[in-house]
Structure formats: C-alpha cells, structure tokens
C-alpha cells in the first residue's frame, strides 16, 4: 500500500511533470519517435506491398525476407545499428564530398532503425496479402467494366484491403510505442528514461511509474486507432473490419 502511495505521490509531484526530464516532455519524445517511425514504415512498406499484391508476383519471397526481420530482437538491432549511426554522425565521404547526414548517432536514429525493423514486416506482409486476397471475381468484373489496372488497384483492391491494412497499422503502432522504451538504453529520451534511470538509481517507484506510463500510452494508441477506424475504412465494407482485424493480428 505504501508503495502505491509513493507512486501516487510521484505522479502528484509537479517537478515530475515539467522540464526536460518531466513526464510531458518524455511523452512528447516517445510519441515523436513512434509516429515518425510509423510514417516512414508506411511510406516504405505500403506502396510496394500493394503493387506486388496487385500483380501477385514475387511477393511471397519478399514477405519471407521481410519477415526475417521479425526474428532478430529489437535490442539486437539497436546494438547493431549503434556503431553505424555513430559513424554516420561522424561524417561520411562521398567522392570527396564530406558531410554528416545526422548530427548525433546516439538516441533517436539507432532507436528509429530498431523500431522500423519492427514496424515494416506486419505492414508489408498484411498489405501484400490483403490486396492479393481480394475476391478475384470482383476484380474480373471491374476489368470487364473497362477499368484500367491502376483504377482497379485504387478504387477496388485498396479499399477492400483497407480493413486488414488498417489492423496491421494498429498492431505495428502499439508494438512500436511499447518498444520505443528501448531508446533509453542509447541515451534517447522517451518514457523508457523513467524505467532505465529508475533501475540504475534503485528507485522502484520511478520504474513502476514509467511502466504504467508506457502501458497507458500503448492503450491510448490502440484507442486512437479504434476511433480512427470509422474514418479510414470505406463505409461499404465497414462490416468486414472486425473479422479482418482478428486475422491480421
């Protein structure tokens, strides 16, 4: 009871909310990294996944390769990425043109690499299979009506694949938010700071508070996607959403 009381008073302390190491800034950093990762993951994975799904060619191989990424633990990717990001921050020499693409190899970028490897596989695999599995009869009918391949993909296949793609985004986002905690190991901020620092300082209250905050943020992410579903899923096939979400998870 006294432990929970300590946790409550930790949350009640104004100093724990404001400033660079306060809850608000840590939540901002956490959301910033997670959202950036998801944006890049969608931009990188979705277009090729949809295009390959439409042609139903070569995608099986790509899905296998991309899924290999899931076999490597995020922590391992983080550790592997670190020397490379540090080297990048030091500067690279491109045919005599020396520049540093990133200003720091700690923190944001190695964590981003680890999270990207986590987010891309479910988005790619689900995007590919969702488009491929659209009822061939419907696609044939569209073709018969004279729609171009581009029109078929854009106005038939993608909308029909939307529930599965959306469910994959939802799952990936929650995983990314939960895993962004790891960034604290390589000097990134985010909510992981409370857990890593609390552990090092033998401050159990801070560790617990940090874990609660990460869980709350993950649940909030889930809720945001549940709310956004109404907007994102075309009305005509909205009923299929629940079924698709169950398979995509």
């Amino acid at each position: 009871m006294s432990f929970l009381g300590d946790v409550a008073s930790w949350f009640g302390t104004a100093a724990n909310w404001w400033g660079e190491s306060g809850i608000l800034n840590r939540v901002f950093e956490h959301v910033q990294l997670s959202a950036f990762t998801m944006a890049v993951a969608l931009a990188v994975a979705l277009p090729p996944a949809l295009a390959l799904g439409h042609r139903n060619r070569g995608g099986g191989l790509v899905v296998t390769v991309v899924n290999l990424g899931r076999a490597i633990p995020s922590f391992g990717i983080l550790a592997l990425a670190l020397p490379f990001t540090i080297e990048l921050a030091r500067g690279i020499d491109l045919f005599g043109w020396e520049f540093s693409p990133i200003s720091s190899g700690l923190g944001f970028w190695p964590t981003f690499v680890a999270l990207l490897a986590l987010a891309v596989p479910p988005i790619f695999a689900n995007g590919f299979t969702a488009v491929r599995d659209v009822d061939p009869g419907t696609v044939e009918a569209a073709r018969g009506m004279g729609l171009t391949e581009r029109q078929i993909l854009r106005s038939i296949e993608v909308p029909m694949a939307m529930p599965v793609v959306y469910a994959a985004m939802r799952v990936a986002s929650v995983q990314v938010v939960a895993t962004a905690t790891l960034g604290a190991l390589v000097a990134w901020g985010g909510l992981g700071r409370f857990i890593i620092d609390g552990f090092a300082q033998q401050d159990d209250v801070q560790v617990f508070a940090g874990a609660v905050l990460v869980a709350l943020l993950a649940v909030a992410t889930e809720a945001l996607f549940a709310f956004g579903e109404r907007w994102a899923i075309p009305r005509g096939i909205a009923g299929a959403g629940d079924r698709a979400a169950a398979t995509a998870g």
Binding site: F36, S103, F108
Partner: peptide, 9 residues
C-alpha cells in the same frame, strides 16, 4: 519529426 528529432549537442 525528423527536424525535431535530430537534436544534437
């Protein structure tokens, strides 16, 4: 996000 995230020393 990239612009904000890249906060060097």
């Amino acid at each position: 996000a990239a612009a904000c995230g890249d906060d060097g020393p």
